[in-house]
Nucleic acid binder design. Structure first.
Length: 952
RNA sequence: GCCGGAGUGGCGGAAUGGCAGACGCGCUGGAUUCAAAAUCCAGUAGCCGCAAGGCUGUGUGGGUUCAAGUCCCACCUCCGGUACCA
């Protein structure tokens, strides 16, 4: 009784593929095969201790189908897999247990590999890598040194070697140390003070994701923000190119927009406001005319950035961030106490806290004034935390009439509001705006603006900027929301920085640095006795012994950098290493890189839409500028798979005494707890599907239809207990069923709920395919007697060719769900046929091969009589071609509409002319009756589709 | 608030402006069976009707068109992201 038994056939075929290296990729694409090169890439996983989640195989199955399909069409396919293996969980495990994170990481990688192989993915496993491999992170460190050795030439918009950096005379005059310092200040990798999350109670620095509402995630201890010397990467230099590069990419428009918004380019003007007093304003102005704007503002001005230079005449006050360097200088004695108190309060708030809550504006007057350069008016300077120190110049001119935030602030503190842009005449509330009682942020005709009155604000933007520029008072400027990338972590389990800090005779750092010589890479992690935090805010590598920590080169003593790189580092370039994973002399052989890059298809979760994809594009562009790679962008086509939710759950609500409350009446209080309209707490109860029925557009209790029940699929989570484990699915249904179900659920990019009965459904399909071909009453796997060597009849042939066509087209467009539906139709049709021609059976097995490869191999062998040496395996078989001629039908059925409603059907020869189609439509008995006595106003024939008669 | 995405049977979903609901789940009936499982066959949007057939129907309201799930305008709901970037 050879029933379809995936538990037996799947491991057997996996072993066959592995033994025969069926999916090994050649070093270079093979043009002899006639196809294209295809680089099909998955976002590699973090190998967590929980193992694979059903969300992983969704994208992996999609890319596997694409890869297998491409191979069968003769393409050279590079389809690798690896592991993003540095990460916090392994380090936390190490702190708890003392086990080296490498041991746990390797165990997890082994488990992930087992699970991935169990699903039959056609990866070239010889190319597998982990970011934690020393042979891999050696090159991560090497790339860091490239960043360190590169400065950004803004004129050429190009990253160039630091040796080519022009040194200004006044710098070179001050000697070598000054030159080195100048170079350091221009590198793409540089050091700066940045705030870290220091938790004194835990004695460790925490990552942002380990801090929740200002408390540590573990133990809920207070977390302080303290400045620490950090490595930064100058990604902002590439902001413009990162925006421009998006245009050429085949990515979903939504993702491109997300990246563009994240980079957040805005253009406007920088304007200097004089803070030296009204008496000397005129003198200052004429002096500035002779000496145009310098990059660093002189001490007698407050420089602001604005996107609305057209509203300069409406600036009625100014605001500087609490951290602005001029706060002390600008604070009058009488205000000092208030300003200091305010500043101190602001310093305790994290960026997050500042923006959370009711967002009521706070601020305090400094006691001093600046002079508006366009009209000479003195205006007050305030300190307020709604202005961020890290954006623009950290100071703004406030135009309350035309900026919502300024308006709120001005209203709160009673500052003057002057409208300078006239809203369109038909705008409701126009008079309120002109009276300064409402805010208008649009463009319009400029008023109250001296010489500019009457012009359109969009033109004024330009002319006023030009004039400021001519007068040396301002200049056009561009700003980005994107900040430089904080690149160091105070962690053990990450790549060490290949940087040495020079020490003087006393053992103190001189400030000079040198890269670890290339031939000494990798810098390995030191052996530590334990992984417990040492209780100081410095990195844990400070615990390393002196042999690791100190290095002497050419008689100079150095201390190693003890920060480590963030998890993002390894994932920034792994796609390059797959091309040449064992190269010991280069990160990738340029010849191979040129042959395989760019990635043709990249599939992964949308949660990486911004950071990972932006960071790796940035690294890639630097490598491109420095000649290591040949393409300006790494990922040609990007697809984000949707999230898979848990099974749909029905939830009802009850009060304290167990009475049902309709879901419609359940509210949430300020803390997010469920309450009834009277404010009493409500508890949620899971309701069985059988006790629920649909009423209207919602579900309600069968026993009491007035009680509404919530019906929803939730995100899978351990705490909710709705996580589906792929091991269990494979055990109960087989890997082919899991693969097929994940693709059949719906479009790849959609969010969709899991359903175990749905898995049973596709398993049923595979069972039917099996029985269509195999004689399930015989003792061995032999062909069903219905499978015959005679060719298809006309209808069977049409079905076969139609299926080839639809499956080919749907697979090509990654519409896997409909491709599977087509194969189901084929199977339903041929199962009903008394005889099933072998040619059709060979076709369906071949079409199924990328989707359900194990059963396809097994059935292929059955069709071939088990002679694998003669017939090979189906995974490497040529994809079938369809014959258009076989699709043509001699007669077709056409629906006949009257006034757009289907009223009948006619059968006509395929080649019938429009006139005779209309004639036979009118002759149809039913149609004739309906049009009798009416006039046909118009008749439309859509060839092959329908006929529509418009009658009166 | 703002920015995305989505609203189609009991459920997941399908549909180049051209027969709405392919395919699958579930459900109902039948065949097979001593019985069950498995399998096979038929049916399955709602309403009216014995039937033939008719009417209504793709979140809501308008519009364009011979024809709208699909295009345009306004709105509602849900999901995801984001948070004062001057």
């Amino acid at each position: 009784m050879p029933r379809y038994n995936p538990a037996e056939i799947e491991p057997r075929w996996q072993a066959y593929w592995e033994r025969n290296k069926t999916f090994a990729t050649s070093e270079l694409p093979e043009p002899s095969r006639g196809g294209k090169k295809r680089y099909v890439l998955d976002m590699f996983p973090y190998p967590s201790g929980d193992g694979l989640h059903v969300g992983h195989p969704e994208g992996y199955t999609a890319t596997d189908i694409v890869s297998r399909f491409a191979r069968m069409r003769g393409d050279s396919v590079l389809h690798p897999m690896g592991f993003d293996a540095f990460g916090l969980p392994a380090e936390e495990h190490a702190i708890k247990t003392g086990e080296h994170p490498r041991i746990q990481t390797e165990r997890n990688i082994e488990n992930f590999t087992r699970q991935l192989k169990m699903l039959g993915f056609s990866y070239d496993w010889d190319r597998s890598l982990a970011t934690t491999d020393e042979a891999y992170f050696r090159w991560t460190q090497a790339i860091f040194l490239v960043l360190y050795d590169t400065w950004f030439d803004h004129d050429q918009q190009l990253g160039r070697p630091i040796a080519e950096l022009p040194i200004p005379n006044e710098v070179s005059m001050r000697g070598e140390a000054a030159v080195a310092a100048y170079q350091d200040s221009m590198r793409l990798a540089y050091q700066d003070d940045a705030l870290v999350n220091w938790c004194p109670e835990l004695g460790t620095v925490l990552a942002n994701e380990e801090v929740v509402d200002g408390l540590s995630e573990r133990g809920s201890h207070p977390v302080q923000r303290i400045p620490l010397r950090q490595w930064m990467l100058r990604i902002t230099a590439y902001a413009e190119r990162l925006i421009d590069g998006l245009e050429s990419l085949d990515w979903a428009p939504g993702i491109k927009k997300l990246q563009t918004d994240w980079i957040g380019r805005s253009s406007g003007a920088e304007v200097d406001f004089y803070i030296g007093g009204e008496d000397s304003f005129a003198a200052w102005k004429s002096l500035r005319q002779a000496n145009p704007l310098d990059d660093t503002p002189p001490a007698d001005v407050l420089r602001v950035y604005t996107t609305r230079p057209d509203t300069l005449f409406g600036a009625t006050y100014m605001v500087i961030a609490p951290e602005h360097p001029l706060v002390d200088q600008l604070t009058a004695e009488s205000q000092a106490a208030d300003v200091n108190a305010y500043r101190e309060k602001a310093s305790f708030k994290s960026d997050r806290e500042r923006t959370e809550g009711d967002r009521a504006k706070t601020g305090v007057f400094t006691g001093s004034h600046a002079i508006n350069p366009v009209n000479g008016e003195p205006i007050p300077i305030w300190v307020a935390d709604y202005v961020l120190a890290s954006y623009g110049t950290g100071a703004i001119m406030a135009v309350p009439a035309h900026d919502q935030r300024d308006f709120e602030f001005a209203t709160q503190f009673g500052l003057p509001i002057v409208a300078v842009v006239e809203p369109p005449a038909d705008l409701p509330g126009r008079d309120e705006v002109l009276a300064g009682r409402e805010c208008f942020v649009g463009s319009g005709r400029v008023i109250n603006s001296g010489p500019f009155n009457g012009q359109e604000s969009d033109t004024v933007k330009q002319t006023i900027t030009d004039q400021l520029s001519n007068d040396g008072l301002g200049r056009a400027a561009v700003n980005y929301k994107l900040r430089d990338w904080l690149f160091s972590r105070q962690r053990f389990w990450g790549e060490p920085f290949p940087i040495l800090h020079e020490l003087d005779a006393q053992g103190n750092p001189t400030g000079a640095k040198r890269p670890v010589p290339a031939e000494q890479l990798p810098v390995r992690l030191p052996e530590l006795a334990d992984f417990k935090p040492h209780g100081r805010p410095e990195p844990p590598l400070e615990k390393a012994d002196d042999a690791w920590l100190y290095v002497t080169i050419d008689g100079v003593r150095y201390k190693r950098e003890t920060n480590t790189m963030p998890q993002w580092a390894g994932s920034c370039w792994y796609y390059l290493r797959y091309i040449d994973p064992h190269n010991e002399t280069a990160l990738v052989d340029p010849r191979k890189e040129k042959a395989w890059m760019p990635v043709d298809l990249y599939v992964g979760g949308a949660e990486h839409a911004v950071l990972h994809l932006l960071y790796s594009r940035f690294w890639h562009k630097v490598l491109y500028d420095r000649g290591f790679v040949s393409t300006a962008e790494p990922f040609g086509k990007l697809v984000n798979q949707g999230m898979i939710l848990g099974e749909v759950e029905f939830t009802g609500f009850q009060d304290q005494s167990g009475n049902w409350i309709s879901a419609r009446d359940v509210l949430r209080d300020v803390d997010g707890n469920r309450i009834d309209p009277a404010g009493n707490p409500v508890s949620s109860v899971t309701v069985d599907e059988a006790d629920v029925e649909k009423s209207g557009d919602a579900f309600s209790l069968k026993s009491d239809p007035a009680v509404r029940i919530d019906s929803r699929a939730h995100k899978m989570s351990k705490s909710r207990g709705n996580v589906v484990n792929p091991d269990v699915v494979v055990r109960d249904f087989g890997a082919d069923s899991l693969r097929l179900y994940e693709m059949f659920m719906g479009p790849l990019e959609a969010t969709k709920p899991w359903s175990m009965t749905g898995v049973g459904g596709v398993r049923g399909f595979l069972d039917r395919v099996w029985r269509m071909i195999v004689d399930d009453r015989a003792d061995d796997v032999v062909l069903s007697p219905a499978v015959v060597d005679t060719p298809c009849d006309e209808e069977q042939s049409r079905m076969m060719h139609l299926t080839i066509r639809r499956v080919t087209e749907d697979t090509d467009s990654m519409s896997f769900n409909t491709a599977i539906a087509r194969m189901m139709e084929f199977t339903n049709y041929f199962t009903r046929c008394e005889t099933r021609p072998r040619e059709a059976m060979e076709v369906i097995v071949t079409l199924l091969a990328p989707y359900a490869p194990h059963i396809a191999e097994e059935l292929w062998q059955c069709l071939c009589g088990g002679d694998i040496t003669a017939h090979g395996c189906v995974s490497l078989r040529a994809w079938p071609q369809w014959d258009e001629a076989a699709l043509v039908q001699s007669t077709i059925e056409l629906p006949v509409q009257i006034n757009g409603k289907v009223r009948g059907k006619i059968t006509v020869a395929a080649e019938t002319s429009e006139a005779s189609v209309i004639a036979s439509a009118c002759q149809d008995e039913r149609i004739a009756g309906l049009i009798e006595g009416k006039r046909i106003v118009k008749s439309i024939v859509v060839p092959g589709r329908l006929v529509n008669l418009v009658i009166k």
